[in-house]
Nucleic acid binder design. Structure first.
Length: 421
RNA sequence: GCGGAAUUGGUGAAGUGGUUAACACGCCGGAUUGUGGCUCCGGUAUGCAUGGGUUCGAUCCCCAUAUUUCGCCCCA
């Protein structure tokens, strides 16, 4: 048997309906916030990701799907959404638009060559938002609240918003320097990973779970001592705005994010439930004021987040959130002989085009099985097409709830159903 | 990239080194000569992930591979 590639999944049945529901919610809320849908290619020039995500991140160093196409071009399947959106923003000169800032959202499959586990796949669906051309913490607050409100709207309650600031370039590089200096004194007591992080990306040490309880770890320098006044002011303004929006959040200095392009505001929304797998970050994002320039555009600031839809599905299951799924139909049409079948075919089209969800039998099964089918479809009405009735231009219509049936003229069917549903 | 667990039909699964692989659900048909949801009866695996090996003989023992799953790393 041919099976799906590792780390992929087939979306079908109830899960598919759930996913569609999530998508409906996302689309609806983005409309209200007036974010514009954007779709970019599944694959990009490798350069797009290598120049943006950064070479200290595993995503680019060992998790991308890279290949050469037949024209010998270096191609990479997108591992995340921001870089492609920014590339498109630059290429289409959206910085020159009459309406600013540019507020975009995407909802696409992403690809990372990783070892799959709970909440982590090789092909996965990320929804995300990017706002380009606004440096005000006003937009930071809006973006964070948008992510937060999506979860609230979906019915998730057991979540927490963590925020932090990485400061501007000056603050961040001062802080990095201080961290390296400080942590260098404790290398012998450090876990192996942290020793690597010290060389590659010292900020990430703050996110370590192994060393977190050690005294030297707790006494490490904090970012707020290194923020210059502008960065500090911006961060407190953001908190003010979040308070105003009534968003519950926690300032968490260990949120540093893995991608190189972040600066100032960073945030994560995590699932708190203990039973949830270790992949508990449902959404994450932050400000990236250097990215547009890094990718060759005019210096433009940006703010955004991404969320993993499969993880949200897991979270909804974990919290046992009831999702409104319509799994019933309006009408089931039963028949037996060929003449009746033709009428059934005609009627099914007629009803569907008039807005009714309609099913019938395709397998020439016994009338008894057709009634069973109608029941399984949870149909509100069952039509029994009968040769004798056809002569009088009518059919038998059964109300499956009241279990009553009556003859209805074929021409009156639509009106009748409109009135009764 | 590293480590642990799993892999029997449409589904949940039991089971044994040796003729026809239990049971249940589901599905199809019949009892009910054109009417469901209950009941009863009957039917329903090209054979136990794939490839090797051990053996007179393997679904059951060994090895490898694949996939699933859980964790580390990383990240949504």
């Amino acid at each position: 048997m041919i099976t799906k590639p590792k780390g992929t999944y087939d979306l079908l049945g109830k899960e598919a309906k759930k996913m569609q529901y999530i998508n409906d919610v996302l689309t609806a809320i983005c409309e209200k916030y007036n974010y514009e849908f954007i779709r970019t290619p599944v694959f990009e020039s490798s350069e797009v990701f290598h120049r943006s995500v950064g070479n200290t991140s595993d995503i680019v160093t060992k998790e991308t799907y890279d290949f050469k196409d037949r024209g010998d071009r270096d191609i990479t399947l997108r591992p995340e959404g921001t870089a492609g959106v920014v590339r498109s923003y630059i290429e289409n000169k959206l910085y020159g638009r009459d309406i600013q800032p540019v507020k975009l959202y995407y909802n696409e499959m992403m690809y990372r060559y990783e070892r799959p586990q709970a909440g982590r796949l090789r092909e996965f669906n990320q929804f995300g938002v990017e706002v380009l051309g606004c440096d005000d913490p006003f937009i930071d607050a809006e973006v964070i609240s948008l992510a937060y409100n999506i979860f609230k709207l979906l019915g998730l309650t057991n979540i927490r918003v963590n925020i932090n600031t990485l400061g501007d370039d000056e603050s961040r590089s001062d802080y990095k320097k201080a961290l390296v200096e400080y942590f260098s004194n404790y290398t012998n007591d450090m876990c192996e990973d942290c020793q690597n992080r010290l060389k590659k990306n010292p900020l990430r040490i703050l996110d370590c779970k192994v060393d977190a309880s050690k005294t030297w770890f707790k006494n490490a320098p904090k970012i707020d001592q290194y923020l210059n006044s502008d960065s500090a002011k911006r961060f407190s303004k953001l908190q003010e705005y979040l308070n105003l929006l009534d968003i519950e959040y926690v300032v968490n200095p260990s949120i540093v994010r893995g991608l190189d392009y972040y600066s100032h505001t960073v945030f994560e929304i995590e699932m708190l439930s203990k039973n949830f797998g270790s992949q508990n970050v449902l959404a994450a994002g932050g400000r990236y004021n250097n990215l547009v320039k890094m990718l060759g555009g005019p210096s433009t600031c940006g703010m955004g987040f991404a969320m993993g839809l499969e993880r949200i599905m897991l979270a909804l299951d974990e919290e046992e959130v009831k999702i409104p799924i319509n799994d019933s139909i309006d009408v089931y049409i039963g028949y037996v002989n060929e003449e009746e079948k033709e009428t059934a075919l005609y009627l099914s089209q007629e009803l569907r085009l008039n807005g009714f969800i309609c099913e019938t039998d395709y397998l020439n099964r016994s009338l008894k099985s057709q009634f069973k089918s109608a029941d399984r479809f949870k149909s509100k009405y069952t039509i029994i097409v009968n040769s004798n009735d056809i002569k009088n231009y009518e059919v038998t219509l059964k109300d499956n709830k009241l279990k009553e049936e009556e003859k209805v003229k074929i021409n009156d069917l639509v009106d009748y159903l409109d009135m009764h549903m």
